Simulated assay, not measured.
Amino acid sequence: MVRKVPTVFGSVFHKDMPVLAFENGAWQDIRWQSSEAFQLSPGAHSLHYGSECFEGLKAFRQNDDSIVLFRPDANITRMQQSARLLSLPVPDTDAFHRALFELVARAADEIPEAPASLYLRPTLIGTDPVIGKAGVGSDNAMLYILASPVGDYFKPGAPMKLLVETEHMRCAPHMGRVKCGGNYASALPWTVKARKDYGAHQVLFCPNGDVQETGASNFALINGNEIITKPLTDEFLHGVTRDSMLKIAADMGYQISERNFTVDELRAAIENGAEAILTGTAAVISPVTAFVIDGQEIEVQSQEKGYAIRKAITDIQYGLAEDRYGWLVKIDV
């Protein structure tokens, strides 16, 4: 059986979705409803004051046709952190697990074979129908999860040009580790401009020369046998794929350096043959092919190491290599 993968990433959803509501001071039982639409007050706190956050993770059809989730606990923990920082009710771990696992089981027949997957989008929104609560969090909330069969977000082998932006930030520094829509929206003006003016696919935000991340992915430099990436701070998203990449790369023999580095160091390394990659659930590992720095385009000479690391991760996800890290959770279908 060949399962169809939609042309546009994240455009087709499983017909149902689980919904968990936080009302009257408690999380209510999971209910299932159509994923086509839901009712929400036009005065909902999330629509006016941005009290929303989301996650992205994937389920995979392995080589033996079994279905697995990749590191769901890490995504649940990160959403709980985002909820706390946004003053939203924190999702219950057990209920979150049940909703996620049952959704994957229900959508199992739609999960495509490698190199595609089932993308899962848990979303938490503040639902207080009061527009006078600009200075306080939402007491009520709703968590729902969409499931979408997807192919690659960035096609392997396709160009990936980054514009290096040193004047502007992706988002407010204290909000960087929160996975919320406002952070993505705040990066859009520079991303749209980069695409229009330079043909760039993403913007690498480097305020005052400090290399951080792109609008939608973490970033790492592969300089010889060293992988350099910014240390965990509040300024950028603590990516699950980033963490997975660092663990796998260390086992592949790379020296891992989680430290601050500058655009000048980045430029010198690229000009001397270094590679660079983007990491993320949708992106997986996407090697960079060129940078635009101070108006000058600099080609990245190789993507070989980036693709080797990508293969090491995807081989685990699709059951082609042993999961020595305990990252896979098998789903009973």
Rank of each mutant, 00 (worst) to 15 (best):
P207Y: 07
T233L: 10
Q39W: 08
P207D: 06
V292S: 01
I285P: 01
R106W: 11
A44L: 05
D251W: 04
L221G: 02
P42R: 02
F291H: 00
D92I: 04
A220K: 01
H48F: 08
L57A: 03
M160D: 00
K193N: 14
Q255W: 00
S148M: 10
V104E: 05
K4G: 04
S217Q: 06
G132P: 03
N225C: 12
G319L: 08
A114D: 10
V2P: 12
Y325R: 11
R259D: 05
I293P: 02
H238S: 12
I145T: 14
D264L: 10
Q303H: 07
Q296K: 15
E113A: 14
G135E: 11
N225K: 15
L328P: 07
C180Y: 08
G306T: 06
W327P: 06
W190P: 00
E167H: 13
A147I: 07
T289K: 08
A26V: 12
L57M: 11
S138Q: 06
E271T: 02
L221P: 01
T77S: 14
P112E: 10
V5H: 01
A44V: 05
A95Y: 05
H201Y: 02
Y254M: 11
A37M: 10
G306C: 05
V300R: 02
G295M: 08
G239D: 01
V203E: 01
P115N: 09
G181F: 02
S51H: 09
A249F: 05
L204K: 02
P89V: 11
V68A: 12
F22V: 07
R310A: 11
A216T: 13
F291Y: 07
R84M: 11
N272Y: 04
A83Y: 04
A105M: 10
G50P: 03
V329L: 13
K15D: 15
K4I: 13
K305E: 09
R259L: 05
A187H: 04
A114V: 08
G50R: 05
F236N: 00
L146R: 05
D92P: 04
A114F: 09
P231E: 02
T229W: 00
I228N: 03
I111G: 07
F101R: 15
G56Q: 05
P91D: 07
G132I: 07
I125L: 13
Q317D: 08
S46H: 02
D323Q: 12
S34R: 07
S217C: 15
L163V: 13
I227W: 01
